[in-house]
Each structure stands twice: as C-alpha cells, then as structure tokens.
Design a protein around this nucleic acid. Structure first.
Length: 85
DNA sequence: CTACTGACTAATG
DNA sequence: ACATTAGCCAGTA
C-alpha cells in the first residue's frame, strides 16, 4: 500500500479511496496506515475524496502541496486537474 | 463476544 | 454549502 503512495509523482495527488481500491482495502485502512507508519512516504499527496486535507495535518499538507505546484484553492485541492489515476 | 472510535465515502434533503 | 445517514473496517477496551 505504501508502494501505491510512493508512486504518486510530485505535483499530483490521490485520495484514500483511490489508493484503497488500487491495493484492495478500504479507505479507512489507508488512512490509518498513514496516520501510523506514514513517515517514510509522501503522505501529503493523499487527500480526501472532495479534495480537502485531513484535519490533524491539513495546514501543513496544503503547504507541502502548494510548494510542489499543486493547485490549491481555499484549502481545497483541484482533484480533477491533478488526481493520480 | 459487544461497543466505540476514526488522516473515509457516497447518497440524500 | 451544510447536516444527516449509512456503509465501511482495523484497533482498542
């Protein structure tokens, strides 16, 4: 599952649900995995299905994304434009 | 075993 | 845009 997250290139983002489907697990499982072991993967490239960031990290995450060139508007990522298939 | 929790999602009003 | 509801599934108590 961490592999799937690692594969997200800079400037692109994916969602918990998308990762979950790729790996074959539920989105909550992905969220939990990142919340615990997330230090070694680009967790900031994983956002919610609506493009918002998870509460505990949302400020930091939006900074990192914006720093990578991801279009962020009002704390919301433009998934249609930068979603990783 | 049950009950509750949460970096979630999708549908509905 | 906001609130509610139901589904989801691993951890924890």
């Amino acid at each position: 599952m961490f592999d799937a997250v690692e594969d997200i290139p800079p400037g692109r983002v994916s969602t918990y649900g998308a990762i979950g489907r790729l790996v074959g697990v539920g989105p909550r499982r992905v969220a939990r995995a990142l919340s615990q072991g997330g230090g070694a993967v680009p967790w900031h490239r994983v956002v919610r299905a609506d493009g918002t960031a998870a509460e505990p990290v949302r400020v930091r995450q939006l900074e990192l994304l914006a720093a990578e060139g991801v279009p962020v508007r009002n704390g919301r990522v433009d998934l249609a434009a930068v979603a990783w298939p």
